[in-house]
């Protein structure tokens, strides 16, 4: 299998708190990888490590064959990113902001128009970024990530703050990216319903641990096996997955809260083995 990003037991520990705990992710080249988890699960922290914004305290990772900090420049040339909230110069217009990024990336002038167009911001390109609405700032952040159509996109909850039609539009855009040009997308969200509509593969994170990694079909099959059959529910919506996701999180949360008097590692064992079995099943089928 051709992976473009892999992490190996990736860990980030803050003073007395483990934000990302031994995460081993595998992102296939050309796929959309949905990174799912409730708020505070460690999605942003993981993505920040992939971009060199913060350094891991354990484990390792590889982005298109490169490592931080030695390959920082060559990695960042290939990755368009958007982390947590849009970043921009408030004193510049949307277009001027993108032009700064364009110059850093050494791209031709027309890359700015292309990015504005992709993000649906052409109309507002000449407005000062500080005068943008929340949704427009979000789109500006996205345009900054898409500038130059990089082969890898790392997008952290990119639809936050958008209205429903904006969410729909951006989702369609992201979904269309791999067919528009050859790229791999890592996108995080706290809503399965959103990821479900875009992703080929899914990683589920809770309290810093990867509870599941596999294809969407894999997750569906597990849902059926574990009795979250969904397709027969009224309305015909695929709520089984959501149930499965919630129960997976719930189970993990309970395991954490459970008394840990004798065996601290009890939970580790349980969830780790759960994950491994799912993971193995999935690998076997690929």
């Amino acid at each position: 299998m051709d992976y473009i990003i892999t992490t190996e037991q990736l860990t980030k520990k803050y003073k007395n708190f483990i934000s990302v705990n031994k995460v081993s992710m595998h992102i296939r080249k050309g796929s959309i990888y949905g990174f799912l988890g409730p708020n505070g699960a460690g999605k942003s922290t993981t993505m920040k490590m992939l971009l060199g914004l913060t350094s891991p305290t354990g484990g390792s990772f590889m982005v298109d064959g490169g490592h931080f900090p030695n390959d920082r420049i060559s990695i960042l040339k290939k990755v368009g990113s958007f982390i947590e909230s849009p970043s921009f110069y408030t004193n510049l217009t949307g277009r001027e902001n993108l032009d700064i990024i364009r110059r850093i990336l050494g791209l031709p002038v027309n890359a700015v128009d292309d990015a504005l167009e992709l993000a649906g911001l052409t109309e507002f390109g000449n407005r000062l970024a500080k005068k943008y609405s929340l949704g427009m700032k979000q789109r500006l952040g996205l345009a900054g990530a898409l500038l130059g159509r990089p082969p890898i996109l790392i997008l952290d909850e990119p639809t936050n703050g958008l209205d429903p039609s904006g969410i729909y539009e951006i989702r369609n855009l992201i979904k269309s990216l791999p067919s528009l040009y050859d790229c791999t997308v890592l996108i995080s969200s706290h809503m399965l319903s959103e990821i479900e509509l875009m992703a080929d593969d899914i990683g589920i994170l809770n309290h810093g641990r990867l509870l599941f990694e596999g294809s969407l079909d894999e997750l569906r099959q597990s849902a059926v096996q574990e009795g979250f059959a969904a397709d027969n529910k009224p309305g015909g919506k695929d709520t089984g997955l959501e149930d499965m996701f919630l129960s997976m999180i719930d189970k993990d949360n309970k395991a954490i809260k459970a008394p840990q008097s004798d065996k601290v590692s009890q939970r580790d064992k349980v969830s780790q083995s759960d994950k491994v079995s799912l993971y193995r099943k999935q690998r076997a089928r690929l």
Binding site: L51, S81, S85, S87, Y89, T90, N91, I104, L105
Partner: peptide, 18 residues
């Protein structure tokens, strides 16, 4: 201040610039 105001500096750290 212009780097911190819109957290522009975060973007700079994620771009291939020293």
């Amino acid at each position: 201040n212009m780097e911190f105001k819109g957290t522009a500096i975060k973007k700079m750290y994620m771009l291939p610039i020293s």
